[in-house]
């Protein structure tokens, strides 16, 4: 059986909200090392994945590997019943057809129980090689959200050009064109021990618009803004986003979720026809 106790419902709520518009249903793979998930959107352009490590839970028990097929819209509904600061216990018996949730208020004065029906899903997994990227960009997640929103006002795709001078995001459309250049700033690394605020409003003041860029080779990549905007739904979970890119392969966009794990998205690039 699986029994996992998570101190903050907001983490699970946030993860589900940041995936549910990209993926309708998928398997949660549970093992003694944690809970993971990987699924593509219907058009096979974007892949969403997350990992919640066993050590990140207050208590975690998984006797044997389980694949729990869930529909994200159902999960989202159930999790709306939890308050952000509730403790969540997730429980599934071996070979069960339901997934049980217990929400406990922090003062233990209220305990709610819900369950959702599990689905049999033939999940299609992709084998994603561990790869070194030519360019790794780290910026505040709220800045990334604003950037994607701003670019979307003008165009449908964004071109990321990373070079020695910095990284430039540019777009164009019917009404005109726009670009934003970020120069490398090391200050972004200084504030990780700062306010600890989660995304909104930036963190630690000076680095809110900073951008750290590690570059091995210049990279130029065109990406769909529709998907990037979907990825920014994970921004409330993390102060920072890390965008890893190489020419002509899918970009990886990662949001670390506290000490418990991460949400990672892959997006296939647009290339010359």
């Amino acid at each position: 059986m699986l029994e996992a106790r998570l101190l903050q419902a907001s983490i699970l709520k946030g993860i589900v909200e940041s995936v549910k518009d990209l993926v309708r249903e998928a398997n949660f793979d549970c093992s003694d090392s944690g809970i993971s998930f990987q699924a593509m959107d219907e058009s096979n352009v974007a892949l969403s994945s997350f990992l919640l490590r066993a050590e990140g839970f207050e208590t975690y028990r998984c006797d044997r590997n389980l694949s729990l097929g869930v529909r994200f819209s159902s999960l989202s509904k159930i999790l709306k019943c939890a308050n952000n600061d509730d403790i969540v216990v997730i429980r599934a018996e071996d070979d069960a057809d339901v997934l049980n949730f217990v929400f406990e208020s922090p003062d233990e004065s209220k305990i709610s129980e819900y369950q959702i029906k599990l689905l049999d899903i033939d999940g299609e997994h992709l084998s994603i090689p561990e790869q070194e990227f030519d360019c790794v960009i780290k910026m505040s997640s709220s800045e990334f959200s604003k950037l994607c929103r701003d670019m979307t006002l003008l165009g449908q795709t964004v071109v990321i050009d990373a070079a020695k001078e910095g990284v430039k995001f540019s777009t164009y459309g019917d009404i005109g064109a726009g670009s934003v250049l970020y120069k490398h700033s090391s200050s972004i690394d200084d504030s990780s021990s700062g306010s600890g605020g989660k995304g909104r409003g930036g963190s630690g003041g000076m680095s809110a618009r900073g951008c750290s860029i590690e570059l091995r080779e210049p990279v130029s990549l065109e990406l769909s803004l529709k998907y990037l905007n979907n990825f920014t739904k994970a921004a409330p979970l993390s102060d920072y986003v890390v965008i890893s890119a190489s020419n002509e392969i899918p970009v990886m966009v990662q949001f670390d979720v506290g000490d418990i794990g991460y949400i990672r998205y892959y997006l296939a690039p647009q290339i010359k026809d």
Partner: peptide, 14 residues
């Protein structure tokens, strides 16, 4: 013109 690629072009399906 640019064409949207799909992930299975790059990653192996298991």
């Amino acid at each position: 013109a640019k064409k949207q690629t799909i992930l299975s072009t790059y990653f192996l399906k298991l």
